[in-house]
Design a protein around this nucleic acid. Sequence first.
DNA 1: AGTCATGGTGCAGTTACCTCA
DNA 2: ACTGAGGTAACTGCACCATGA
Length: 290
Amino acid sequence: MELALSLGETSKPFRMGIGLAGDCRSKDKDASVVGDDSDVVPLRLELIPFSPVRRSSNPTTPQLQFRLPWLAENRPAEREAAREVARCQEASRFSAVAEESSFPMDFVISSGSGGGRSNSNSKRDLEADADREGSRGSDDDENGLTGRKKLRLSKEQSAFLEESFKEHSTLNPQKLALANQLNLRPRQVEVWFQNRRARTKLKQTEIDFEHLKQCCETLKEENRRLQKELQELRALKTSQPFYRQLPPTTLTMCPSCERISTASTSTTTTTSAISSVNPFPRAQAHKAAS
DNA sequence: AGTCATGGTGCAGTTACCTCA
DNA sequence: ACTGAGGTAACTGCACCATGA
């Protein structure tokens, strides 16, 4: 058995970057998903594929074809795992049916904890309420639990979501399709993507931290080296007093290209070349030019 | 064209649950 | 059996954006 999932535009590879400055909230969508090259650290997380994905041969219809390994038809050895998934998601069907139903479901009665919320999350609230209702199944009735019940996604479900996440880190187009294919509630898929983005960002932050730490160490070492070199040059300068007696007119600088040339030998050198032994190349060059 | 209400979605922060050493 | 740490599903509150009235 094979199911096809259309994920829309897939030409742009997913890239995740962390902005170095500024408020990410004001531009979080762009910064966290696409990442403007101007404000992200060049080090990036690469999402490594770990299971084969067969793509549609037709480029005009970017379509992914996933195998659903937990289905009994595909891997008979995992029939029991599939039954376990079905058992775990039994509560999901309740709310899924409720969503598909044309009858208005009376989920508006709040369970108490979200009293101060704005109206802008009403659908999410309804889903959460439905989740709570759905999760209060026979198990909870038996053992008396009233809190939220945590459903562990199967490895196969997580892998499937990972594949989808690699194509789109945002969810909008494929949420319902994913939820249907995985036999999960749309809210579960949504939460999974949110948590996945958070994990990626955290990982990227750790990588960035290590990268910046290394940069810091490198710069410290470079600074130490330059300070030592400066001390040596100063010592050389004091031990060779004739160094001061060099006529300043021996150096001239072209005002347009800022190249320094010696009048006697007409040897041209750049200011950057001089700066390797002179901490104040520009000042000296201007002084020489005047 | 500007304003407001509403809905959808993302993120940060947090909580609660589960697993494992 | 107990426990603490780590992973992660789920929740909460807020912000932003799109859309329609």
